[in-house]
Simulated scan of single mutants.
Amino acid sequence: MMTGHGDDPHAVGGLVRHIPVLLAEVLEALEPKAGETIVDGTFGAGGYTTAILERGASVVAIDRDPDAIAAGKALEQQAGGRLKLVQEPFSTLDRHVESADGVVLDIGVSSMQLDQAGRGFSFRADGPLDMRMAQAGLSAADVVNTFKAGDLARIFGFLGEERHAGRIARMIEARRERRPFERTLDLADAIATHVGRAPKDNIHPATRVFQALRIFVNDELGELASALFAAERVLKPGGRLAVVTFHSLEDRIVKRFIA
């Protein structure tokens, strides 16, 4: 298991290629080679898949984000039958491949999603309060505007490890009576105004709340647990599993599963 997350853009053949920050470590763990099948459970911008294909292996690449699948169609055509793209949550990976020599899961949100203000994952730029990876189902706005303060506090406290979870939840419940939260910057600014920011704070006061909402809306911890069991079912004897985690909640699940 490796910790860390993110993509670095590099130009390749005139195109922008996204290189995951732990690509070398993942390739070392997977050791993909010709004749093998590797499952990339988090296709994203295709960084892992491209590198695995270059090593000669075939790839079943899964992503629930329709934008990611659409962007990968050109790579699928270039791969000459060695790449199969699947638009599904990665928890269903065992439905799309019977056996695999390796599985890689890079947990969390991709830089591609963060960079699109219209997806609502980040408050670096204003956008709709959405955060749905699959672009369907309950949105972050639905949660913020309809859940009781007690439920919001539990979400922020457990999934975001936010120490002001109760205060923020009560503020949201009171403010939404006057005007619902629909935009990322509206929520982020309301949290910052209510909680304040000490000079020593390295992160924005809304960071943990946004993390918690994203994890809840996409059931990321449940998906991770299900994906680990699915990976175990499809891996051949001697198969390799590489998981890149971003924060302590994911880290704990993976470590306990491996133990």
Rank of each mutant, 00 (worst) to 15 (best):
A70V: 09
I52W: 09
R55M: 14
K84M: 11
P89H: 04
A74M: 13
A136T: 14
G108R: 07
A68R: 03
G81P: 12
F156A: 02
D65T: 08
V59F: 11
A100Q: 02
E54D: 15
A149R: 03
D101S: 08
Y48E: 05
A57H: 03
M112H: 13
F147E: 03
V109E: 06
E76L: 03
G108S: 15
V104H: 00
V60I: 14
Q78I: 06
A51W: 01
A68F: 07
A117M: 07
L93H: 06
A117G: 13
P66S: 10
G127V: 12
L83Q: 08
R154T: 11
T146Y: 04
V59E: 08
G80K: 05
S91E: 13
L129K: 07
V144F: 04
T49A: 01
S111I: 03
V143R: 03
P89S: 13
I107C: 12
A71Q: 15
Q135A: 15
L85V: 04
V103W: 00
A140G: 12
G80N: 10
I69F: 13
Q87E: 15
P128I: 06
T92I: 03
L152N: 02
D67W: 04
A149C: 00
A68Y: 05
L93C: 08
D67K: 10
G137M: 12
A61E: 02
